[in-house]
C-alpha cells in the first residue's frame, strides 16, 4: 500500500464509515515543536457526537510540508491558509495556498525562532 492509498483508505474510514463518520472539522491548528511541526485536527461527528483529535507531525521543521485535507473538509482550506501564514507549513495539493493575514515576504510569526525587534518587546 502506498502512502497515498493509505491516506485515502484512512480518510475514507474516518469520514464515511458508519461508526466513525467524522464530518465536521472543528479546528485545525499548527504547533511548532523544537524538532518538528505538528498539525492538530479536532474532529467531530455530527451524527454520533464523538470527538477525536488527530495529530500529524512533519519530518522537517524548517520547511515542513504535509498533504492538504481541504478536499475532505472545505473549511480546512482556510484553516490551512492560516497555518501556512503563521507557521509556514506547506500543504501539498492545496488549491489556493496564499497568505491569509500577512503580506508576502513576512516571516512566520508563530514560529518560536521568529524575531521582530520592532514589534515584539521582550519583558
Amino acid at each position: 500500500m502506498t502512502q497515498d492509498e493509505l491516506k485515502a483508505y484512512l480518510l475514507d474510514k474516518f469520514t464515511s464509515a458508519e461508526n466513525t463518520s467524522f464530518d465536521y472539522l472543528i479546528c485545525l491548528s499548527g504547533v511548532d515543536y523544537p524538532e518538528y511541526m505538528e498539525v492538530v485536527y479536532h474532529l467531530e461527528s455530527v451524527s454520533l457526537r464523538h470527538v477525536m483529535v488527530l495529530k500529524v507531525r512533519t519530518k522537517d521543521r524548517v520547511s515542513p510540508a504535509i498533504d492538504t485535507v481541504s478536499d475532505i473538509w472545505i473549511t480546512a482550506k482556510y484553516h490551512e491558509r492560516e497555518v501556512y501564514d503563521l507557521l509556514g507549513v506547506l500543504f501539498n495539493n492545496h488549491t489556493d495556498l496564499r497568505r491569509l493575514f500577512l503580506e508576502d515576504g513576512w516571516g512566520f510569526p508563530l514560529r518560536k525562532d521568529y524575531v521582530d525587534e520592532i514589534r515584539i518587546v521582550e519583558r
Binding site: 491548528s29 504547533v31 473549511t75 482550506k77 482556510y78 484553516h79 492560516e82
Partner: peptide
C-alpha cells in the same frame, strides 16, 4: 502555544 478556534473565521468563508 495557544490557538483560538473562532466561530467568525469559519462562518465568514
Amino acid at each position: 502555544r495557544v490557538k483560538f478556534r473562532s466561530p467568525g473565521f469559519s462562518n465568514l468563508f
